[in-house]
Structures are given as structure tokens and as C-alpha cells.
Amino acid sequence: MAMERAQVERTGGLPATVAREKLFRRILGRQPAAWLYLMPSLILFAVFVFYPLFKTIYLSFFLSDMKGLPTVFIGLDNYVRLFSSPEFIQSAGSTLLFVLYTVPATIIIALILALLANEKLKGIGFFRTIFSSSMGISVAASSVVWLFIFNPSAGILNRILSLFGLRGINWLADPNWALFSVSLTTIWLHLGFTFLILLGGLQNIDEHLYESANIEGAGYFYQLRRITLPMLSPTLFFVITVSMIDAFQTFGQIDLLTKGGPGNSTNLIVYSIYQKAFINFDFGSASSAVVVLFFCILLVTALQFKFGERKVHYQ
């Protein structure tokens, strides 16, 4: 501000200049410098987020050629075909089942870990580090490790089964087990992050609440139900939303563990989009699936805002 005023004075403050300055400010606001600070973000968002979003919607109304370029406008035909294709219905069904397998289990296990790791003990930092460790392990690395664990002959899981005299399971090649196996990998992979967020939420709860409850002689589970869970609910809600969105977006595990098989049983939606777009180069049909995915995720986020907002305290 001071600088700008000094500048006006230096330029002589001619009436014309002042008028132009005023006009300038009316358009850009009092501190036009703001746009310089925002410019990099705005350009990048425009090029890599907003333009492609609209382009995807546009592409979904077209047939595309071998290079993926749009050719003939076909209106909603891509959508009609999508919803009448058994593969897509199966893919959507598998994705929903996958969400159901992974989200509740991840959150319940992470919550138990967080409650345990929130106790004040010597060396608790070590356990916290171990519990959060999967956050530092990439999708690719953990999928390859689990590929080894699931291996029918060399893998440890079937070794353990054989110790009990049970027959080995073809974890990733059996259509009845594949989705379960991928879910197991995913739960393990997401535990670290979910644990870390929930632990943070627990640590933010006011100590005094527990002190007064202790004076009144309330037991552990009573406190858990009446203090901890209600106070943790905004964090829980956030974690549920993030986990659901993560589950919708699953890709790496599928690519490395099953490639969508056996018999399409693990062909989750993002993997099917990848196949449509980058293996068959059918951008039009892939775009329509992307738009469907987009609205599913939007719905989850909107629910988070509608129900989560009320309980969250914004600064």
C-alpha cells in the first residue's frame, strides 16, 4: 500500500494517471500484486484441472478414432452403451464390493490401533512409527510384497495353511478369492495413513473431559462411547470420506496383482478406464466412464460437506 502510494506520487500524480490508476484498481482490486502471486496456481489449474475436466465431458459425447481423437458426435450413446455393457456393470459392482470390504475394516482396525497408541507409555513413539509405517511404503512396493505372500507355492500364506493341514488357496487366480486378496492388501496399505489421522484426532481431544469423567468413576468403555467417539466424529467422518474416495481410485494394486482378472472379478472402475483409454485407445467410451466416476466421488464429497461440516469447527 505505502509503496503503491509512493509510486503514484513519483509519477507526478497527473490527473490522467490517477484516473487510470483508479480504473485499474476498480478492475483488479486494491492490490493487483495479488494476481502475480496467484498466477502460477491459476495457470496450472486451468491447464491441468479445469480444461481437462470439461474436455473429458466433451469427449464423452463423441466417438473416437484410433488415436483417441473425437470424430462423430453421438450424444449420450457412450453412456447408454456403458450402462448396458455387462463388463461395466460388473466393474461397478466389484468397485462397490471393494469399498465395502476395505473401508469399514480399515477404519475399525486403525481406530483400535490409534486408541492403543494414544495411551501414555514409555516407548509409545516406536509403536506409533510402526503402525504408521505403511504410509511410507508405495503401492508398487507393497503390491509386489503381497504378490509374494499370495504366491501359491512359495508364499507364506499357503505355507501357514499347510501347517494346519489345509489345502492351499489360489489367492489371486481364484475368482472367489481375488477381490478379497486385493482388499487385504489395500487394507494393510491404507492402515498407516488412517491410523495417523485418527491418532491426531484423539490427541486433539481436551484432557479435562477425561479428568472429570474419571472423578465420577466412569469406566473405559463408557468414556469411549460418551467422550472419545463423539469428540472424534469429525475426524472419523473425514477419514471415511477419504478412504471411500481412495477405494474408488484404486489402480496400482490391481495392475500389479491381478490385471483385473480372473474373469474381470477385480476389474475395478479406474482399471477398466485405463484399459479402455490406454490399451484400446477408446477415449470416448473411457471418458463417459470417467464422468460417472467423477459424479460418484462428487456425491461422496458432497455428503462429507453436508454432514461433516456441522461438527467441524472452522477457524
Binding site: F48, L53, T56, Q249, A286, V290, V291, F294
Partner: peptide
């Protein structure tokens, strides 16, 4: 709120 996949193809 825009998943990264929504802009992947373009």
C-alpha cells in the same frame, strides 16, 4: 473435489 482421473485422458 475433482479426482485426478477426471483429467487424466486430456
Amino acid at each position: 473435489m475433482i479426482p485426478w482421473e477426471a483429467s487424466m485422458i486430456p
